[in-house]
């Protein structure tokens, strides 16, 4: 059995391993109910330029009412400069040095730009931010981000909002194996609770998702389902799965069964 330690994000400990987004719900009320049902302790929020503190305060108040730790993100940024500026604005507005760094390289796929991501991460770390970079599942990129000083990495499962699940489990498990002490969170692309479960079984520390819950027919029920899936996946990881075998091994010993040879 493995040790079960709480989720660690830059020294802060959390029981829940589900980070939840705050966009795309049918209404703010449904959002609040879904967030409660998910039992998440961390909620991501995107700051648009149009939401200055005073202008956006209503929605921000609804987020604050959830009582969760806020993880602001830089969704929608395409350049290092934009992302750094937005991160600085987020620090002021949300009074936190956490930033989920999202830097889009391809407009349609919303695929992160690895080159710009490294540059922005370096700048933000030097300015004292605790950076949680949203990245592709590329091992070398993850190693570079780790070398810069990131304590949390968030590789994608699949492109944002696709609900396809873990498209490349091999890449993801390789990152897990090679960065054993890093807090790793699968971010984006999940659609089903089983996808989240799979990530946790693999040893990922947490998952971050939004559309899978917000876009479900009943977001509140789906939030519950994801909560259960994440707990199941983590428990399975801690319990350590049996080794996989190619040949059947009976689960009931056949010795002493009177007619065992009749099946031949």
């Amino acid at each position: 059995m493995r040790d079960d330690k709480p989720l660690n994000i830059y020294g802060q400990r959390f029981e829940s391993r589900l980070l939840i987004g705050s966009a795309l719900y049918p209404s703010p009320q449904v959002m609040q109910e879904a967030i409660r049902a998910s039992q998440s302790q961390i909620v991501t929020v995107s700051l648009r330029r149009q939401n200055s503190v005073s202008a956006g305060d209503d929605f921000w108040q609804l987020i604050k009412d959830t009582g969760l730790t806020v993880l602001p993100n830089t969704a929608g940024c395409h350049s290092v400069k934009e992302a750094v500026t937005l991160a600085q604005m987020c620090r002021e507005v949300f009074a936190t040095d956490w930033i989920k760094l999202e830097l889009i390289g391809d407009e349609y796929n919303l695929q992160p730009d690895p080159v710009a991501l490294l540059e922005a991460t370096q700048i933000l770390l030097s300015e004292g931010f605790k950076v949680l970079p949203y990245c592709t599942d590329d091992l070398v990129l993850c190693q570079r981000l780790a070398a810069l000083g990131c304590e949390v990495l968030m590789p994608w499962g699949a492109p944002i909002g696709t609900g396809k699940g873990l498209l490349n489990p091999y890449n993801l498990s390789m990152i897990r194996q090679r960065l054993p002490d890093m807090t790793l969170i699968v971010d984006a692309g999940l659609g089903l609770p089983s996808h989240a479960c799979q990530a946790l079984e693999m040893g990922y520390d947490a998952v971050l998702l939004n559309s899978a819950i917000a876009g479900a027919g009943c977001p509140v029920k789906m939030a519950k389902a994801f909560n259960h899936a994440v707990q199941a996946g983590r428990a399975a990881y801690v319990a350590q799965a049996m080794p996989e075998k190619d040949v059947a091994a009976p689960s009931t010993p056949t010795m002493g069964m009177p007619f065992w040879h009749q099946s031949n």
Binding site: P28, N51, G56
Partner: peptide, 11 residues
């Protein structure tokens, strides 16, 4: 459709 109280000009 943007969660904002800002009624300033379109971006």
């Amino acid at each position: 459709e943007i969660e904002s109280q800002d009624d300033g000009p379109i971006t």
